[in-house]
Design a protein around this nucleic acid. Structure first.
Length: 387
DNA sequence: TCTGGGGTCCTATGGCTC
DNA sequence: TCTGGAGCCATAGGACCC
C-alpha cells in the first residue's frame, strides 16, 4: 500500500487559513530566485507545479495567494500521519515527509482486506489531522505508487495482480520510476512512448542507451517486476546544507562566511544525530548555473564545525575561483559513522573547539537558536563610528 | 521561463595494491 | 624486473526523487 498526502504543504497551511479554501494557493518564498514548494489543486489548474520558478508560477496564476513555508508544521503533521500508519502495521517505510509504503499483508486477520485497511487509514488521517490522502494498493511498491498517484486527490485505487499489465502498459514512459526529463527524451528518440513500448524493447537496447543498471531496472519495472520489499527505517548516508544567494556573490569573504554558517549547521545536525562524517564536500554553483563539487576525505571522522570549515575553506581556496560569480554554496558530509568511534587525540587542537561547540549546543537547547553565535556570523547593527 | 533544498544512486575515471 | 589484469577506493558529475 502506498500512502501519499494530497498537496501536503499547501493543505497544512490551509488548516490555519481556512478562508483560503477553494482559492489558488502557492507555498514558497516570494524571493526573485525561489521556486514553488507546493500548490493547491486550484493553482495546479493554471499550470502551476512544484519546483517551478515562482516568477513563472505567478505569471501563469497572477491572483494566487503565496504563503511562506513552515517546515516545523509539516514535520508535526507528518509525524501524526506516520503514527497512524505505525498503528496499522509495523511494516512502514517512510518516503520523504509525506509518503509511506505499508506492507499490510499481515494485517488481514486483524483489520481486513487491504481495501478495508486503506479506508480505515484515510478516515483516521482525516479525522485526526483534517488532511486528505490518497492510497494505492497493488502487489508491488512501484504499482502501488502509480495507483496512488492516479487516484489523486482524495482517492483509493486497487490494482489486482491479474490486471497489472493492462493497467501499466498504456501509461506514458514518464510514469516509470527513474524516468525524468533526460531519460524520457532519450527513450522518445528511440520511438518509445508508453511503458508497453519499453517492455517490448530488447533489454540490450535499453542498456546500451541508459547504462547497465538503469536499463535493466526499467525493463524490469515495465513488466511490473519489482522485488523491493517494504523496509523499515534506514540510516542517513549524508548530511548537508546549501543556499542560493539572492544575487550572485563575487566577494570571497562573503563565500567563506557562508561556508562557516553551513559548516556549523551541518555539524549541529551531525551531533544531534549522534554521527560523524569523514568526507567533506564543497558545492558551488556559478553565475552561469554550472555546478561543481569538490570533496576531501579526512584521516578520521568528525562532527566539529571548526574542522569541517577548515577543510571546506581550504578546498575552496585551492580551486582558484576567487573572483567567479557564485550563485550557490553548499557543504555536505559523507561516509557517516556512529559518533565516538574514532581514536581520540589525533587532532589536539580539537578539544577546545569541542568544548565550545558543546556549550553552543547546550545554550541552543536551553534558550533557542540564535542566542549564541560565532563572532564572524554576527550581523553588525551599529554604525562604524560607535566603535 | 529560468531554474530551491534535502537527499540517493549510478557511472566513469584514475590511483594504488596484489 | 616488468607488465597486465582484477579489485578496491576516492573523486566528480549527472539524473532523479520528494
Amino acid at each position: 500500500m502506498h500512502v501519499d498526502m494530497d498537496a501536503f504543504f499547501a493543505s497544512v497551511e490551509l488548516l490555519e487559513r481556512p478562508e483560503l479554501r477553494g482559492l489558488p494557493v502557492i507555498v514558497g518564498h516570494r524571493g526573485s530566485r525561489s521556486v514553488v514548494t507546493a500548490a493547491t489543486y486550484e493553482a495546479r489548474k493554471y499550470g502551476v507545479n512544484s519546483a517551478m520558478p515562482m516568477s513563472i508560477a505567478l505569471r501563469r496564476c497572477p491572483n494566487a495567494v503565496v504563503l511562506e513555508p513552515h517546515f516545523d508544521r509539516y514535520t508535526h503533521f507528518s509525524r501524526m500521519v506516520m503514527a497512524i500508519c505505525d498503528d496499522l502495521t509495523p511494516l512502514v517505510e517512510r518516503l520523504g515527509i509525506d509518503e509511506a509504503f505499508l506492507d499490510v499483508a499481515g494485517a488481514r486477520k486483524l483489520l481486513g482486506t487491504p481495501y478495508e485497511v486503506a479506508t480505515i487509514l484515510r478516515e483516521r488521517v482525516l479525522a485526526e489531522t483534517g488532511l486528505h490522502c490518497s492510497v494505492g494498493i497493488a502487489a508491488t511498491k512501484f504499482i502501488a505508487k502509480l495507483a496512488s498517484g492516479l487516484s489523486k486527490p482524495d482517492g483509493l485505487l486497487v490494482v489486482p495482480l491479474a490486471d497489472t499489465l493492462t493497467f501499466l502498459h498504456p501509461l506514458p514512459i514518464s510514469a516509470l520510476w527513474g524516468v525524468g526529463a533526460k531519460t524520457e527524451e532519450q527513450l522518445t528518440r528511440l520511438g518509445l512512448r508508453t511503458v508497453g513500448d519499453v517492455a517490448n524493447t530488447p533489454l540490450l537496447t535499453l542498456q546500451k542507451k541508459l547504462g547497465d543498471a538503469a536499463g535493466a531496472k526499467l525493463h524490469q519495472l515495465s513488466w511490473a517486476r519489482d522485488p523491493r520489499s517494504v523496509t523499515v527505517g534506514s540510516e542517513e548516508k549524508s548530511v548537508g546544507h546549501e543556499v542560493t544567494f539572492g544575487h550572485d556573490i563575487t566577494d570571497p569573504a562573503v563565500i567563506r562566511r557562508e561556508l562557516l554558517r553551513m559548516s556549523d549547521q551541518v555539524a549541529v545536525r551531525l551531533r544531534r544525530a549522534g554521527v560523524e562524517g569523514r568526507t567533506v564536500v564543497l558545492k558551488l554553483r556559478f553565475g552561469d548555473f554550472t555546478t561543481i563539487t569538490r570533496s576531501r576525505t579526512l584521516s578520521e571522522h568528525t562532527d566539529l564545525a571548526r574542522r569541517i570549515y577548515d577543510e571546506v575553506v581550504d578546498v575552496y581556496a585551492g580551486l582558484g575561483k576567487d573572483h567567479e560569480r557564485v550563485r550557490l554554496v553548499g557543504v555536505r558530509m559523507e561516509q557517516l559513522a556512529p559518533a565516538g568511534g574514532s581514536a581520540l587525540g589525533l587532532w589536539e587542537t580539537d578539544e577546545g573547539w569541542r568544548e565550545a561547540e558543546n556549550v553552543m549546543d547546550a545554550v541552543t537547547a536551553k534558550f533557542g537558536r540564535g542566542l549564541v553565535q560565532r563572532a564572524a556570523l554576527v550581523t553588525r547593527r551599529h554604525t562604524p563610528d560607535e566603535d
